[in-house]
Nucleic acid binder design. Structure first.
Length: 631
DNA sequence: CAAGCTGAGA
């Protein structure tokens, strides 16, 4: 006998008075209950039930009037409930299934319920109960439950179900194949996906799409493209979903010509502008391949745009270093009244970091608080980075402390942030916390750590961390790390140590490393060594101006004006232009940009007067600017 | 008896 305590108490009340479930709309209201019920067939009232409560009343009533038919009744009610997918009806149905026994308990009840529960992690448990009751899966059960496994990354359960699919002879079904492939794809087992695909007698477009997707997800973009061509060769035409996946492979490869080719193909086959997913994938592809103009053109032509379309534009521009343009697009987005989501805000914060737009960054922070967006993960990390790069290490630290789940990126942002703002000690304190919370530093973290040591002149400490990289953390130092070490040694005046260090490098020193040593020569006035490094640097990257400038500064400080002039001339002959020195400051929301030699600022005269006074003030206190202070 | 698998942006 079923027990539904709340329902029973409901049932004791006069049911007629509380609803119209047993009546038809034209029925007179106040007749006794018995006159509405067809005693021979109480189930024909089912369709008039309008709420779970009414259904429970009918259920209770039928159980009372027909105590010998509880199983039949429950299964009838269940059949009626199945098409409704509201949470209440699912809960009720799940309870009914618990009490049913074969032959009333049918496979399709489980199938429907498992499907309805795919998002709730109960699907797997229900599948287990089904097996316990000796009801065995068919080609519908397996895909539903596997979908749930894939969603919750339940690899072990998924593998057991994989075994079931073989045991019950279902593994040649293409839906079973596709969902199995999906399971292994989300768990990162690309090899298993490929093996399943290759071993299957039947594949459809979904199988190909899933295979390509698996390759893309794990960064095998070339294999993804290869599979795409294989698919075309097998005479299958891509659909919208395949195209989205293959376009993202082009994005990752940065292969503009392939991406453009696929774009042209799409125009032949589909009306692409009707699908916002394809449009977004195209915008993203053009952006990641460096063609911002084509991306913009496509974006403008899209008849339907959503927040992802805007985000693709904004983050694409940020990635290309077009920060001001990115903020322009963001303001357009606000003008049309589209609400930014966390992805938008991350991109905007990134632009703020690079432009020093502290005010806008603060606005984003306020927006995040006001809209109860969690300042965790990407958003939290972007906030920390923004405050740090805008010079507010304290506020960066505030956000950092408030974050519930800090990952490597959070720690790295904070360490680099403190290092950049001259707080080497605090940077190293944060670094020391990492082992305590079990977060493993990565290569970038060490760039922060080493540069902190470098700026604070902590030679010993720097050496220790550099050695720990490979010894403790199993990280191979890259040229950036060698560059930091050269910088650390060089700044501290240990130039010959730095030279030995470079000579012993296991990898080829690049411009970054030689540049650091040249910088040290510039600080310590080492002309001959500088000249030797200069030659190497020009050989590695002849178009960059940095080496020329540094070297010419070395000549100038050694009063070798002729040599300095010669270098400047050589630059002119090679048509190299010096990248002008540039600084930004934001006051009351307006960014003021100053380039070397630029006199265009409206308050230029005043600024120069103040700078002159500051120079005199500094000199009176024994500080002498090393180069032209006023330019 | 009813039903399924695959898509975008940090």
């Amino acid at each position: 006998m079923l027990r539904f305590p709340s329902t029973l108490s409901q049932m004791e009340k006069p049911i007629v008075s509380c609803s119209n479930i047993f009546t038809y709309s034209h029925s007179p209201p106040k007749l006794p209950l018995s006159s509405y019920i067809d005693i021979n067939n109480p189930f024909h009232c089912l369709e008039s039930c309008q709420s779970p409560r009414e259904l429970k009343q009918l259920h209770a009533l039928t159980l009372k009037t027909r105590p010998l038919q509880t199983q039949l009744i429950s299964s009838k009610i269940l059949s009626f409930l199945i098409p409704f997918s509201s949470p209440e009806s699912v809960t009720y149905a799940r309870e009914l299934v618990n009490h049913l026994k074969p032959p009333y308990l049918q496979l399709h009840f489980y199938n429907s319920l498992i499907q309805a529960l795919t998002n709730s992690s109960q699907a797997i448990a229900l599948y287990g109960e089904m097996i316990t009751k000796c009801i065995y899966p068919d080609t519908y059960t397996i895909p539903y439950v596997l979908k749930s496994c894939a969603q919750s990354h339940a690899l072990e359960e998924g593998q057991q179900i994989h075994a079931h699919s073989i045991k019950f002879g279902l593994s040649s079904n293409v839906y079973v194949l596709n969902t199995l492939m999906r399971l292994y794809a989300v768990c990162g087992f690309t090899h298993s996906v490929k093996k399943l695909f290759d071993g299957s007698p039947e594949r459809d477009l979904v199988s190909w799409t899933t295979l390509i997707q698996a390759f893309v997800k794990m960064g095998f973009a070339k294999e993804a493209i290869q599979a795409y061509f294989d698919m075309c060769r097998a005479n299958l035409r891509p659909d919208k979903r395949t195209l989205v996946v293959i376009l993202s492979a082009c994005s990752r490869l940065g292969d503009l010509s392939l991406g453009t080719r696929i774009h042209e193909n799409i125009c032949d086959i589909h009306d692409i502008y009707s699908d916002v997913f394809v449009g977004n994938a195209l915008v993203d592809m053009y952006m990641k391949c460096g063609d911002a103009d084509s991306a913009r053109k496509l974006f403008d032509k899209m008849p339907v745009k959503n927040v992802v379309s805007w985000n693709s534009m904004i983050s694409g521009l940020v990635q290309q270093g077009q920060f001001k343009e990115a903020l322009h697009v963001f303001h357009d987005m606000q003008r049309i009244g589209l609400r930014p989501d966390s992805v938008t805000l991350v991109a905007v914060l990134n632009a703020c970091s690079n432009l020093g737009k502290l005010e806008l960054g603060k606005w984003v922070h306020a927006y995040i608080d006001k809209n109860q967006i969690k300042a965790d993960g990407f958003v939290g990390n972007a906030l920390v980075d923004m405050y740090a790069k805008c010079g507010s290490a304290e506020q960066a630290f505030g956000v950092f402390q408030g974050m519930e789940c800090k990952d490597v990126f959070s720690y790295t942002a904070m360490i680099v942030g403190f290092a950049m703002n001259g707080e080497a000690e605090r940077a190293l304190d944060i670094f020391a916390e990492m082992p305590m919370v079990g977060t493993k530093p990565d290569e970038v973290t060490f760039v922060g750590v080493l540069s902190a040591c470098s700026h604070a002149g902590m030679v010993e400490e720097g050496w220790k961390h550099f050695e720990d990289m490979s010894r403790v953390y199993n990280l191979e130092p890259q040229t950036e790390h060698y560059g930091c070490m050269v910088d650390l040694l060089g700044r501290a005046g240990l130039i010959s140590e730095a030279e030995v260090f470079i000579a012993n490098m296991p990898i080829e020193p690049d411009a970054f490393v030689w540049g650091a040593l040249l910088g040290a020569c510039s600080i310590h006035g080492k002309v001959e060594l500088g000249e030797a490094i200069m030659k190497k640097l020009v050989a590695i990257e002849p178009v960059r101006d940095g080496a020329y400038i540094l070297m010419s500064n070395i000549y100038s400080s050694a009063n070798r004006w002729k040599d300095a002039l010669k270098l400047r001339k050589a630059m002119k002959e090679r048509k190299m232009k010096k990248t002008p020195g540039c600084s930004l400051i934001e006051i009351n929301g307006v960014v003021h940009e100053f380039r070397k030699g630029d006199k265009s600022h409206p308050r230029n005269e005043e600024l120069r007067k103040v700078l002159g006074e500051m120079a005199i003030h500094l000199q009176n206190h024994g500080q002498f600017p090393t180069s032209n202070f006023i330019t």
